[in-house]
Amino acid sequence: MEAPRLTTKTFHLQHGTSVYELHLKRLEADRVQLRGTKISNPEGSKALDEVEAHVQQRGNEIVLKTANGPHRAIAVRTARGVWVSLGERTAFFEFARKDVDAVSTQPVKTEIHAPMTGKIVDVRVKPNQKVGLGDILVIMEAMKMEFKLEAPMEALIESVGCEKGQLVDLGQLLVQLKTLDNKKA
């Protein structure tokens, strides 16, 4: 038996609009303690309940035993983050920047990216045009279905990075928006 080494590692994992700052402490070779904070915008930060677990990992299976009983998770680590499936939930946690403060003061989204690979069916806006919340900016098509990309806020169109008929990749910048009440300019 190896002597347990009490190491603590910190991870910043983003899930949806929240960032979890997690401190994983190795109590023994197969026992861990997790403490952490959940930071959300605009709710702020909240301490998470401390939890201890007996852990066994085999391939992508992680068997946990906590005070709530045994749990079996399936997990995969990628370059971008970790996928976890446990019971009725599946989640992707993206490795987040260490600077937690930066996340809690996230700027309002001003860029519209392609949510999928597909074709631009129509571009409804031009640079310098004013748009309201929910106005249609671009219509995309993928898998023979149409999707409308709408303005997330009242804004001014700064630039348009796509044109009708164009094939775009997932994540490609389509439209750049500028807040009307532009204080940070």
């Binding site: 997690l22 709530n68 970790v82 976890v84 490795f95």
Partner: peptide
Amino acid sequence: SEMLVAAAVAA
């Protein structure tokens, strides 16, 4: 919290 433990362990 079990989900978070699994995420941290996987990370």
